[in-house]
Design a protein around this nucleic acid. Sequence first.
DNA 1: CAGTGGTCTAGACCACACA
DNA 2: GTGTGGTCTAGACCACTGT
Lengths: 249, 249
Amino acid sequence: MKWDDPLPESIPVPLWFQIAERLRTAIKRGDFQPGETLPSEARLNQVFGVSRATSRTSLDRLEQDGLITRRSGKGSIVISPRVDQPVNEMSGFAEDMRRRGLLPSYDTRFVGRIRAPAEVTEALEIKPNMRVYQSRRLLKADGRPIGFAVSWLSPSLFRRIRPPSADDLNRGSLYEWLARQCGVKIIGAREFIEAAIVQKDMAAELNVPLGSAVLIARRSSHGSNGLPVEYAVLHFRADRYRFHLQVNR
Amino acid sequence: MKWDDPLPESIPVPLWFQIAERLRTAIKRGDFQPGETLPSEARLNQVFGVSRATSRTSLDRLEQDGLITRRSGKGSIVISPRVDQPVNEMSGFAEDMRRRGLLPSYDTRFVGRIRAPAEVTEALEIKPNMRVYQSRRLLKADGRPIGFAVSWLSPSLFRRIRPPSADDLNRGSLYEWLARQCGVKIIGAREFIEAAIVQKDMAAELNVPLGSAVLIARRSSHGSNGLPVEYAVLHFRADRYRFHLQVNR
DNA sequence: CAGTGGTCTAGACCACACA
DNA sequence: GTGTGGTCTAGACCACTGT
């Protein structure tokens, strides 16, 4: 499939998205090398028979994803490719692992209601000392411990719906469960990333010697209504995990 | 200043940007609370006398910056505000520190040409064992060590221009120097973030005990032509520094 | 139903880069 | 000069949300 083959007719996918995907795969394949320019907006209009706004929307997306930069008078220039797959797009642990070619699994250690510490009530924007649903899970990749996730969910989710069981949590992604059962999609988050020396109980869970380094992420997630959904603290083995992110502008 | 005051006439700033700034400050000020909706696109058209494409571009920017989400049929919904200052937008160390209310300074330990290790030649996309310009700098905030930056610059920068001196580097941001002297703006980067136990020489520089944790960032920066400009490895004291990032979609 | 954002068209004028 | 992306207008039809 060449990048400029005609688009299929009347499928329920936006034109701008189809065009962006064409260019994206062409870049991945190496048809456009880093430093080279993509076809101009006018050219895309001719090739795909669309208006300029549509082809611009395609390029907007590629720019936002860090694949190209655009310069007035020059064109849309391909940026050196990512070495790895993922980036800082929103993704749960399971998806993250699959993209790295590893098989994710969970061991749920605890589920239940507990009194939330201040760090949590602040993040979830609820009253101090309120009781919230907590889960504690060991995260594994190809069967080996890689991280430990402690997660608190907003009480507002469980007015009508029962919280997930340990089985639910072992079965798959928490985010998928929230989407299926609560109709809540997590669409963004704020994260703090820190380094620390592993604590005793966490060393046992992660199966690392005392004195090892861990990578810690504290994540506040929000749904499409803009309100907090989950607060999570994740510890990762420093020898098996690193964050990868793409920064623009 | 209310968010819907008339826009000044004929200033050389895009309308969509001015509108986005109005809404941004209104959100920061609390005129629109988290979970509330912003004025609809049609309303913005009336208020500012612009076309729908223009008001949409404003909202696109706010969405990209993680301030709002949009739902067809509902509106543009304000997301809970960031606790800290900005986030994963491109910024050098100096700017980063100033945003945290700290005074940045540098102690340059070394500048000169050295043979680049494989990690560097790969990131800069140059031939193995090529000699490149390296700098090693201690990063300080309010006079106290906070990190250590080792940076390699692409040889292509110095065909016509002399590399920066230790004085240049002590004086201010490397990125500002590159912009001024080489006309190269860094517009994006790829980063890996890791945790580790501090090494002996680094412990001495950072003034931390052996066995402490450090946060390590490995950054490949590229300019507006999409080609690599700088590769840097930064070690941060875990007790004084953490990353903060905003994840969308 | 009316209002919302999502997508798309067909034009326009501008500043910028390069030959 | 020609071609590039940056900005902007004035329409249009659609799917979705709530009443």
